[in-house]
Amino acid sequence: MIENKTTATSENNLLVVENLSVTVRNSREKLIRNLHFSIPQGEIFGLVGESGSGKSLTATVILGMLSKSLEVTSGSVKLGQSEITSLSERELRNIRGKEIAYLSQNYQSFFTPFIKVGKQFIEIIRCHTDMSRKEARKVAIHWLNKVHLPAERVFNSFSDELSGGQLQRAAIASAIMFRPKLIIADEPTTALDVLTGERILDLLSELKEELNCSILLISHDLKHIINRTRTVGVMYGGRIVEIGKTSAVLANPIHPYTDLLLQSRLRLNKHIQHELPTMLGEPGLIAEEGCPFSKRCPSVRESCSNKVPMSSLGTHHSAACHLVKAEREERYVTR
């Protein structure tokens, strides 16, 4: 069996997630199953899937903020040399906000509503360094300017006095103050209008180049991701069902779920000739055994209820589906 080649091959991987499983404590309910992916230094990795597929939970694990009712039952999460799952609470706290930064979808609730934004910047800085209030203020203003915000005004505002775009920018500023190695952006643009969202993503890419950090970009919508990411993973039911170079996945989606996600994109420039495909079954219907998508899959087979391993199709693309084999044979034949 050929293991997924996009992971674990290159040496300059910043984040390596291996065989990660998360379950509800004292029960057998698995929320994440055998997750495998890695993010190279300075790249944007996209994670796509519908809500409840385990994307945000993955982010939570990487931040080391799993709630006490959940536990990591297997696998490892490595950031550089440090193993996140075995760090103490204190060590984790030092990494959070400093080496790993987090941006959330809900920009309105990113800053605590009754504390002024500037105060919260100072709080972050002083939690990670010994700076005085005055120095911290200077740093905060500097970074607020960096994201093209009217720094003084934002500094003295409560979060509900700012617009969505401003808040997300302020959030980014707070995230990059310590030049983090990894930024986790959990649906950073979903709640924003399209143009503002695009600008935020532009800003993120720009900053990524400047800081040379990696970004884990989480979204439920492929279209947010395809233009920005180098690699992409598609999650369903707590598993990655397809992973690979974004271009490769786009050009040749193997797993029926990926295929459906891609097809359901509206293409404004094309005339729609056929009916848009609708997904079978309820969203979130997850098969316990075998391929999680098998209960909704249009090309389901008997073997899908067995364990479906990841198999690769070329060096930069792999999927957990029986169709990979068919695809390979097809290529062989056509060649």
């Binding site: 509800v24 809500s51 409840g52 945000s56 939970l57 939570t60 799993l66 709630s67 009712s69 959940l70 959330s104 979808q105 809900n106 959990d186």
Partner: peptide, 9 residues
């Protein structure tokens, strides 16, 4: 973001 919080109560 609330998914990792099963019923706390």
């Amino acid at each position: 973001m609330n998914i990792q919080m099963p019923r706390i109560n």
